[in-house]
Structure formats: C-alpha cells, structure tokens
C-alpha cells in the first residue's frame, strides 16, 4: 500500500503489465558506451545508465547522441561495482519491496572491502546516484563506529598532521570518548 502511494505511476505499470514490460525490454535492448577515467569502455544497458543522473542529463541535452560518454572522474574498478548496484536497484523499480531492497543493499555492502566503499563514494557522488550514496554513507559510518582514531585514519588513508603535543591535549580534553573502543 505505502509503496504505491509513494509512486502513483506504479499502479498503471502493474495493471497493464504486458505493454509496460514490452517497452521495457525494447528499451533495455539499447546499450550506451561509457568511458572511464582510465580509458576503459563499459557497454551498459540504457535503463542502467539512466540511473546515473549525470549521464541522463547528458542525453537530455543531446537526445540523439550516439557517442561514447566520457566519465572523467570515474575509474573503472569502483565503476563496475556501481553498475552492479544499479542493476540490482532496477529490479526493485519494477517490483518494489522495501524489505528485499534493504536486504539486497546490505548484502551488496557486506561483500565490499573498506577500500571498495571509500572508492565508490566519489563515483556515486559524481554520477549523482542518491540511493547508492545513502547506502554508502551509512555503510562507512557503520564501519568506523566505535573504532579507534588510528583505525579511522587507516580506513580513509589519512595522515595524522597533529603534533604529538596537540594530539595528547585532544585526548586529555576528551578522555571520556577514547575509552572502550572496539579493537582494531
């Protein structure tokens, strides 16, 4: 009930499945070429590519374009994972099920290394994939929760630029927050 209220167009999709599915298949047959910053070309179904707001607006500006779309800020490795996520998401567009979607999202996140997650964030950000960004933000927060400062530094690859005096002072001032963290 709630999901159909969120998306009123859905009702029509469900009541007229045959025509809708037919168009969907016709659409998904179309492929779009996307070129990453490290010069790899990904052939992606149009329905998946339209999940990337940045790519979508590229086609809105030039509807008849058949060129390869360059993605100068997107390296291939995180991009392939982003595509994997969007393919899953599309299934839920046709058949929304919040519980299943959550489950699928958490499985997606669970399999990823810390590095995978951190690398995907700027890609999701550049491509403006809001759902993925939300999932990644939460996943990153979950992984640094109750962890030591040293762990957070290595998680994000951040150099400690405090002097030892500054750091000692910080720890003294906030001594209460440095107790009982999970082991690294």
């Amino acid at each position: 009930m709630s999901s159909s209220a969120e998306n009123p167009t859905l009702t029509t999709e469900i009541t007229k499945p045959s025509t809708e599915i037919a168009t969907e298949t016709a659409q998904s047959a179309k492929k779009i070429n996307l070129k990453t910053s490290d010069d790899q070309i990904f052939e992606v179904e149009e329905s998946v590519a339209m999940e990337f707001a940045t790519v979508k607006s590229f086609f809105e500006d030039a509807p008849s374009s058949t060129d390869t779309v360059p993605l100068p800020n997107v390296p291939a490795k995180p991009f392939s994972q982003v595509i994997e996520f969007c393919k899953e998401q599309i299934k839920f567009k046709a058949n929304p099920d919040e519980t299943e979607k959550k489950k699928s999202n958490s499985e997606f996140v669970k399999e990823k290394t810390n590095e995978d997650l951190v690398e995907m964030i700027p890609v999701a950000n550049y491509l403006e994939i809001k759902d993925l960004l939300d999932v990644l933000n939460q996943a990153v927060a979950d992984r640094i929760q109750n962890r030591s400062v040293e762990y957070v530094r290595s998680f994000f690859g951040i150099d400690n630029d405090f002097t030892s005096e500054e750091e000692a002072l910080l720890r003294e001032e906030h001594a209460w927050a440095f107790e009982d963290v999970d082991e690294d």
């Binding site: 927060a141 530094r153 951040i158 963290v181």
Partner: peptide, 16 residues
C-alpha cells in the same frame, strides 16, 4: 550518519 557522541569526538581527532 554517526549516531554516538564519542564517535564524532574521535573523528574530530583524526586530522586537523
């Protein structure tokens, strides 16, 4: 997304 006050304090001790 960090919900615990000590998490924010530790994050603020990561770097300048």
């Amino acid at each position: 997304c960090l919900q615990d006050p000590p998490d924010l304090v530790r994050v603020s001790s990561v770097s300048c």
